[in-house]
C-alpha cells in the first residue's frame, strides 16, 4: 500500500461506522408490519370503497402511501453510499472493507451470508475501474452508470440465488429496492460531498499527501 496516511485510516473507520449506523437504523423495530406494494391485500382496501370513485380513490391513496413508504423504508442506503465513495475516493473504501461490511450486513439482515456481498464486490469493482473515466464527467453520466450497476447487482443477486436453489427474494421487492436506491443516490452524493467532504480529485488538482496526479 502506498501512502497509507492516517487520514485514509480515519476514513476506513468512518465508512465502517457509517455502515453500522445504517444497519442499526434498518433493524430498529419500527416496521414489524410487512410493507404492501404490489400485492393487493383485502384488509387495507375494504373500508368505505362503496362507489367506483371511492374504490379508485382508495386504491390510488393506498398505492401512493405505499410508494412513499417504500421510498423511505426499502432503499439500500449502504449500497448507495458505497458506490458514491468508490467513485470519489476509491482508496477510502478498499475491497476487503466493502466485503467485510456487506458480509456483516448479510449476517445481521438475515440474508444468505456472502452472496449479496460477493455480488456487491463485482458491482463496485466495475465502478472502481471506471473511476478515471468518470472523473470530470457530468453527474448525469455517473448517475446512469451507478443506476446500471445497482440494477445489475439486483439482477445478479436474484439469478445467483435461483442458481443456488435458495428461496429467491420477491422480484417486485428487489426491483423496488433498486429503484428507490437509485432515487436516493443524488441525495447520498450530496451528503458524501457536503458532510464527509469526499470529492473527486479533478485532473490537475493536488491530491493531499500524494502530489500531482
Amino acid at each position: 500500500m502506498e501512502t497509507l496516511s492516517s487520514r485514509t485510516v480515519i476514513y476506513w473507520l468512518g465508512y465502517f461506522g457509517l455502515a453500522m449506523l445504517i444497519i442499526m437504523l434498518n433493524i430498529l423495530p419500527l416496521q414489524t408490519v410487512p410493507p404492501e406494494f404490489f400485492s393487493m391485500n383485502a384488509v387495507s382496501l375494504e373500508s368505505n370503497a362503496t362507489t367506483m370513485f371511492g374504490l379508485v380513490f382508495a386504491v390510488l391513496k393506498s398505492f401512493l402511501a405505499d410508494f412513499v413508504l417504500s421510498l423511505v423504508s426499502t432503499p439500500n442506503v449502504l449500497l448507495a453510499f458505497t458506490c458514491a465513495w468508490v467513485l470519489r475516493k476509491p482508496e477510502y473504501v478498499p475491497v476487503m472493507l466493502i466485503g467485510a461490511v456487506f458480509l456483516l450486513a448479510d449476517f445481521l439482515l438475515q440474508r444468505p451470508p456472502g452472496l449479496y456481498a460477493a455480488v456487491v464486490i463485482i458491482g463496485t469493482e466495475f465502478l472502481r475501474r471506471r473511476v478515471m473515466e468518470l472523473r470530470g464527467a457530468p453527474f448525469l453520466v455517473e448517475y446512469l452508470t451507478v443506476a446500471g450497476v445497482i440494477f445489475a447487482i439486483a439482477i445478479m443477486y436474484r439469478i445467483f440465488s435461483s442458481v443456488a436453489v435458495i428461496t429467491p427474494p420477491d422480484f417486485w421487492l428487489l426491483f423496488l429496492q433498486a429503484v428507490s436506491t437509485i432515487v436516493i443516490y443524488p441525495l447520498v452524493v450530496f451528503v458524501t460531498q457536503a458532510v464527509f467532504g469526499i470529492r473527486s480529485v479533478m485532473p490537475g488538482q493536488l491530491d493531499e499527501g500524494r502530489g500531482r496526479l
Binding site: I27, L30, Q110, Q177
Partner: peptide, 15 residues
C-alpha cells in the same frame, strides 16, 4: 422485549 426487526422488507422477524 423486542430489540430489533429483520431490517429489510424481504424477511419478517424480530429479535
Amino acid at each position: 422485549v423486542v430489540l430489533a426487526d429483520s431490517g429489510s422488507p424481504f424477511r419478517q422477524s424480530v429479535l
